[in-house]
Every structure is written in C-alpha cells, then in structure tokens.
C-alpha cells in the first residue's frame, strides 16, 4: 500500500520533469521574445520596489521599521510568490482550463490531476519576480546591520519555501472554487495578489481586522512578518517565544497545504466539464 503510493509519487515527479521540460523546449524556440518578456517583467516590478523606497524619502521609518527592513519583507514576499508563480501557475490559469474543458484531458490520463495542472503552465519568464525579490533582499542585507548567523542563513530558505507552499495553496484553493463557479475567481485573486502586497509591509500598519484575517484565516503573516521579526532581530520579537516565531512558517504551510489538498480532492469530484 505504502510502496504503491511511493511508486506513484515518483512516477508523478518524473512526469512533472518531462512536462516542464517539453514546455521549456517549446519556449526556447522563441528565445528573443522570452528575453524581452523577462526584462519587461523585471522593469515593471522594479518600479514597484522603487515606490517603496520613495516612501522612505518622506519618512525615515515606517512605524519603527527602516527602509532595509521593509525591503527585506518585500524581497521575502516577492521570492516566495515568484516561486509559487513559477511552479504553480497552472493553478493560477485554472479558470481558462475549466472554461475550455481542458480538465477533461487531464482526467483522461493516468496521473494525478494535481501534478498535471501544476506542470501545465511552466514559464521561465516568471523568473523576473524572483530576480527582483533577490535584488530587494540584497539591498536589505546592505542597508540593515543584522548579524546573519549560520542558523539564520539556513532558516531563510525554509521561510521562502514555506511562503511558496502557502501561495501555491492559495492558487489551489482559488482553482478549486472554479469547480463550482468560474465567475468567482476574481474574489480569490484579490486575496492572492492582495496578499503579496500585504506581506510586503509590517503587520501592525494594518487595521486589526486585516491583521487577524491574514494571520488566522489566510496565515500569510506566519511566513513573512513573524519569521522576519526573528530574522531581523526586531525588538517586537521579544513579545513571543522564539520557538513559536521559528516554527510558525512550517506549521502554517503544512496546515494550509493540507486544507488546500483536501479541498482540491473534493473539488475534482465536482468537476462538471462543459456541455459542448
């Protein structure tokens, strides 16, 4: 039983690589357009980052957070979200898949529907956001005087991965809604894209209702604000036990992934295809 499950999982992983490989090959046929898209995406996102920096022209700090610290939050959110987009965009484009009944094709094949959708829209040009986030992190390192211990350096990618899982979880939940109604997908999009905006600023600047929403309902604060308190050595960190701050991304990602997975499985059973 377990053996069979593991074998299936390995099969899925190797299939993911094959699908993504074929998508890459077909994208590489248009190398110039790929580069142009990458550069345009990068430039577009840079203005977003500039807007944050310009904010600090007028205020020295944002409720006690320096420009470097906010750049850190922004970089963290961008990389996580960028990776989620890179690896999970098939779920982001799911309304189209449903509208055109392409999910029929997915269900005809002997692989997990999840893996097939996940690998369905891999586009390298989405690297733009990750590059942009990495640049923001670079500035954050330069502008803050945080002592980066080996533990903290090792922990940083863990937080990024947990963030990625959480964002992919949003995509999956949004996609799951499409099994009932494609029209409501805008609602899910607002939470997902609004969520990255949200994660780019320190939690306390928001209204308390919003803080609670993004902590307990959509646990974004657990992969941005709370671990950043620990990583940046912010004074607020002393309000919480350290293990709680450190464990929060893992717990939030695991829980959210489970919820998204269960919802997805339930949704697939309610897929209705189209009449023509």
């Amino acid at each position: 039983m377990l053996g069979a499950t593991v074998a299936r999982l390995l099969e899925d992983v190797s299939l993911y690589r094959i699908f993504v490989g074929s998508r890459l090959r077909s994208q590489m046929q248009y190398r110039e357009s790929f580069l142009v898209m990458l550069v345009l995406g990068f430039v577009g996102l840079t203005t977003e980052f500039l807007a944050i920096i310009l904010l600090f022209n007028r205020f020295d700090t944002l409720i006690g957070w320096s420009v470097g610290e906010v750049a850190f939050l922004y970089g963290l959110a961008s990389i996580s979200f960028g990776m989620a987009e890179l690896f999970g965009a098939g779920f982001d484009n799911f309304p189209e898949t449903i509208r055109r009944a392409e999910f029929d094709r997915v269900l005809l094949r002997p692989q997990s529907a999840f893996v097939q959708v996940l690998s369905g829209d891999f586009q390298l040009r989405r690297l733009g956001r990750i590059l942009q986030g990495t640049m923001a992190l670079g500035f954050a390192f330069a502008w803050t005087s945080v002592a980066w211990s080996p533990q903290k350096l090792a922990y940083l990618p863990v937080v990024v991965l947990c963030g990625m899982v959480l964002y992919i979880g949003f995509f999956v939940l949004g996609a799951t809604l499409c099994f009932w109604t494609v029209d409501s997908v805008e609602v899910a999009n607002i939470i997902t894209y609004g969520g990255t905006e949200f994660a780019s600023y320190p939690l306390p600047i928001y209204h308390v209702l919003m803080q609670r929403f993004f902590t307990f309902v959509v646990p974004l604060a657990f992969v941005s604000y709370f671990p950043s308190l620990y990583l940046l050595g912010r004074p607020e960190a002393s309000d919480w036990p350290q293990w709680l701050l450190v464990a929060s991304p893992l717990a939030a990602a695991a829980l959210f992934a489970l919820v998204a997975w269960l919802a997805w499985g339930f949704g697939v059973k309610h897929y209705r295809s189209t009449g023509s």
């Binding site: 809604l177 009932w180 109604t181 029209d183 409501s184 805008e186 609602v187």
Partner: peptide, 12 residues
C-alpha cells in the same frame, strides 16, 4: 449568472 463583481460574490 449574475453580472459584475457583487454578482460573482453572491453566486458563491
């Protein structure tokens, strides 16, 4: 089907 964003929310 209902029109607009509010319609989409109600459709849920």
């Amino acid at each position: 089907r209902r029109a607009g964003f509010a319609g989409a929310v109600r459709g849920l």
